[in-house]
Amino acid sequence: MFNFFKKKQADPKSKHVAKERLQLVLIHDRASIPPNVIEAIRKDIILAISKHIDIEPGDVSVSIEAHPGASRNSRSIVADVPLRKKGEAVR
């Protein structure tokens, strides 16, 4: 009986799926920056940072993010550049 309810909970309701998908697609719609431009920015960031420190290009991600609660048009370009742990930095 309880298992039945638990199982239902694990499966996310479609309204949450809808909302998440919409929020993601709208960030890109509103920014009107095409994916290839984002990719170009990503490559340039990798190039710029690699001059100074050792990073793994495959780990660098660039995305457009909305600011929750802020106005419709407030967005940022967010770059995530993980630094290597000391032990890993062998080349």
């Binding site: 479609s14 309204k15 949450h16 809808a18 909302k19 919409l22 929020q23 709208l26 106005s71 419709r72």
Partner: peptide, 19 residues
């Protein structure tokens, strides 16, 4: 459907569109 979690409700749509 909103109560069953299978359709976005008023709050969801207003939050997304922010007008």
């Amino acid at each position: 459907m909103v109560l069953k979690g299978e359709m976005m409700g008023i709050d969801d749509v207003v939050e997304i569109l922010a007008i």
